[in-house]
Amino acid sequence: RDVMPTDQMDKHPLQNRWALWFFKNDKSKIWQANLRLVTKFDTVEDFWALHNHIQLASKLTSGCDYSIFKDGIEPMWEDNKNKRGGRWLITLPKQQRRTDLDHFWLETLMCLIGEAFDEYSDDVCGAVINIRAKGDKIALWTKETENKEAVIHIGRVYKERLGLSSKVVIGYQAHADTATKSSSIAKNKFVV
């Protein structure tokens, strides 16, 4: 304990270290150049310090994303930890940006850092929020579409944590399907 720096005392460690990424759409640059690693954190206190410091998602301009991923996983389909996986997708009509978007995103973040999915939390890779004029999206990414039990458990808990009505159906799509889709709607592999 003698060697622990003062600012690390009394902080609550997280199970995982997480990285926050920011994407800003600048069409003059290639996609990867618009994606920036903001910072990493691994305690509850550092999470809140970060969350309180950055712009609320609902205040970002259209075309921007926040992503939060486990350290070592890049927020893109191509990453080895993502490529066999998929995402639980929440789409929000424009009018819900004001009422629900920031709340849903914070709940998503708390599910991730708090390891809300018990042993299936190991299947979680991260989450992404897309701010778009045509409708915002929040997605929770998992590592393996074939891990049906994990995917379904995560979807059920996630839906409950967001406080969504049992009448609302949310879908899980494989990244491989999203990446190759010809229409604007990828098919759902699972729903809860």
Binding site: V44, N52, I113, G114, D118
Partner: peptide
Amino acid sequence: GTRIIYDRKFLMECRNSP
């Protein structure tokens, strides 16, 4: 090993503590 789990209530309390 043991997983470090924090429920919503605990996380929100940490947010509000000085």
